[in-house]
């Protein structure tokens, strides 16, 4: 039995270390990475009750004609705190919000920007319409009370890929796919900042719930041919080289080879979950969890193809 004093101390410490017990604050601190260009870095973790879903990078660009926001975070609360953080940096109004793709950590903060045009690729809007509520439900399960009052707000405008000029920033809107059915990548040709969305992960295991891995690897090849000064990945630190592009590609290649090899050698799905990886891959944040999720997403199809190559006579 714990003495009463120890128990009290334990409770005090738990309250201090657990933000979920106090007023919820994501502690968003925009970091200026280029003139007028800010990034808010999330944790390289899985969704949990401590991080409240803040595992994602969001960003904004302050131009002479207003602010452009790139992704809105995992919850209503995040969206609101992002908007407050922007207001502390500039008096410029927010003129446009982009959702790079359908995943919940990028779009569930939309609620805080309902009075502003929210733009996304058409398949992204369709995806959010179909699966947004499902995402919202599972985010409650994973991030708990941080999600309070969050509802799905659909983007209001379709993005046309191409170059647009906003307040002196020439933004190249690039449509890709592979991580999801539609991934919007934004290259600010004025500053050289590439917002690569979840096409690129840095130091964290890529996620595959809607992935077409072959298309994704092609998208990465296209990305490497772009000229940029700084790369903002969807998850992980900002860099000035293409290391995270190489890293993301290396992981995807390993993943697809591992799953194909497992299917061709007769491993059962539960055995595949235990696969070993080379250290350059196993060291990526949340490797085991994300790899196991990817087995669930990708293995059944690969396995069905492998079994379909067998010799069977239907009697």
């Amino acid at each position: 039995m714990m003495p009463v004093t120890q128990l009290l101390l334990f409770i005090v410490i738990m309250v201090m270390i657990s933000p979920a017990w106090g007023a919820k604050d994501y502690g968003l601190t925009p970091k200026e990475i280029a003139p007028g260009t800010y990034v808010l870095l999330g944790q390289n973790e899985h969704f949990n009750f401590r991080n409240g879903g803040n595992i994602v990078n969001t960003g904004f660009i302050v131009t002479e004609k207003g602010v452009i926001v790139i992704d809105t975070g995992p919850s209503r609360l995040y969206g609101e705190q992002l908007r407050t953080a922007i207001g502390k940096i500039t008096d410029q109004p927010i003129v446009k919000v982009f959702n790079t793709h359908l995943h919940p950590d990028h779009i569930l903060g939309n609620q805080a920007f309902e009075d502003i045009q929210i733009a996304a690729l058409p398949s992204t809007i369709e995806g959010i319409r179909e699966q947004g509520e499902l995402f919202n439900d599972s985010m409650y399960r994973l991030a708990g009370a941080w999600m309070a009052g969050t509802r799905v707000v659909l983007p209001t405008q379709s993005v046309n890929p191409g170059v647009v000029d906003v307040g002196g920033h020439r933004l190249r809107l690039i449509e890709m796919d592979g991580h999801s059915h539609a991934d919007l990548v934004i290259l600010d040709q004025t500053t050289g900042v590439l917002f690569a969305a979840d096409v690129v992960f840095h130091g964290r295991t890529p996620t595959t719930p809607h992935a077409d891995v072959t298309r994704w690897m092609q998208a990465l090849d296209t990305l490497s041919s772009l000229k940029f000064k700084l790369l903002v990945p969807g998850h992980g630190h900002v860099v000035s080289d293409s290391l995270p592009i190489v890293q993301t590609r290396e992981y995807l290649e390993w993943l697809i080879n591992r799953l194909s090899q497992a299917a061709e050698t007769g491993q059962t799905m539960a055995e595949v979950l235990e696969s070993d990886a080379p250290s350059s891959i196993a060291k990526l944040a949340v490797f085991r969890e994300e790899f196991q999720r990817s087995v669930a997403h990708l293995f059944p199809d690969i396995e069905a193809k492998a079994l379909g190559r067998g010799r069977v006579e239907q009697d």
Partner: peptide, 16 residues
């Protein structure tokens, strides 16, 4: 009994 700690797809939880 080998299975994932968390079911990514509750219609298809692999078990060995």
């Amino acid at each position: 009994v080998l299975l994932p700690g968390d079911a990514e797809d509750s219609m298809n939880v692999p078990v060995l």
